[in-house]
Design a binder for these strands. Structure first.
Lengths: 184, 184
DNA sequence: TCAATATTGTACCACTCAGTAAAGAGTTTT
DNA sequence: AAAACTCTTTACTGAGTGGTACAATATTGA
């Protein structure tokens, strides 16, 4: 039969948005088939492991993107100020000023946390340590840098929760400004 | 037939813990009947509105508790330092060092946010303004106090997300110390 | 004692869930 | 051209969903 969608990779970003919008449990196969315009057959052809595999792949893709765009620059740049500043901009963009949810944060609060525990831990650990590396290059002592990094990562998550709760992007933007000011 | 549980009020805290543990969608009636030891008949007798009414009542009860234990002291105490300090302790206790989820925060990230939007907005708004009132009594200017309060409330949520993601209460305790230090 | 009311167990409803099976259509390879 | 492979459609399963109906039973107050 005719191909509806070129390749499996094309579906992954759609799945990401679906999980963001509906959550893991809320993203029923009915929703997924409707939004992706893919029948169940195709879905299970691409992801034999079903919904769980879909979510796993989405989490992998998110990790890869952040590694490229944020973690590596933080670790490897010889201009830590600039890469931290770039991180704040990228985060603000990525989360669309708080209108977009952090999938990993949402999973962490959900009862699917245990199912994706290792991906969730990896996500936050990688972020913390990459940011801490940049902060050390900025002159902070290792434990001081780790503390600052943990605080920043937590505060980003908090800003996302509050902005979505109050449905107010300004809350997120204010928080990101505070976070950047404190890091630099 | 014999009464299993004395009164409707006794069930509400159980429902709270169930929603915390399973989320709104994850808390199926099967789970609820099992954990409360109440049959569907009793459940729908006490809560004719079904699951949605159960969650609404739980949110109301949470709000009432916080109003009593945290908001009112913050607003009315003439020792703002002490009441802010007490708030931090109460929060740490309430969330069991981050092992317990904030139901309202979790709902905010979930796709049930819209259904309980007003309760969610009220929760965070009340908290922010009560804390801002205390900060004003501490000598902060109104907009400065509002900003600090918003930051603190957001950071508590962030600490909850990160602590649960990393499954590490120490993350939450560290964050609460930072928050208290910054407020006082 | 006895009727009114409050509570509970059970069976049931229509619907949705994730997942499967299999046959067919399209494309590639041989 | 035909076999092999990739993808899609369709119909289906069995379990679980929230919610309803109602009769059976307890408790209460007169």
């Amino acid at each position: 039969m005719a191909r509806m969608v070129a390749e499996r990779p094309d579906v992954i970003p759609m799945l990401g948005e679906i999980f963001r919008e509906y959550g893991y449990e809320g993203a029923s196969l009915a929703v997924i088939t409707e939004k992706t315009r893919l029948g169940k057959g195709s879905l299970y052809h691409f992801f034999p492991g079903g919904k769980e595999e879909m979510a796993t792949v989405v989490l992998q893709q998110i990790d890869a993107w952040l590694e490229d765009q944020i973690y590596r620059p933080l670790r490897e740049s010889d201009n830590p100020r600039a890469s931290i500043s770039a991180m704040c901009r990228a985060v603000s963009d990525y989360f669309r000023s708080g209108c977009r949810v952090c999938l990993v944060g949402a999973f962490a609060l959900d009862n699917v946390r245990d199912r994706f525990a290792s991906a969730i831990v990896d996500y936050f650990t990688a972020w913390k340590s990459a940011l801490a590396a940049a902060l050390q290059k900025l002159g902070h002592k290792p434990d001081e840098a780790a503390d600052l990094a943990e605080e920043a990562v937590a505060n980003i998550q908090g800003a996302l929760v509050l902005a979505r709760a109050l449905n107010d992007p300004a809350v997120f933007e204010r928080a990101m400004l505070r976070i950047e000011r404190r890091l630099l």
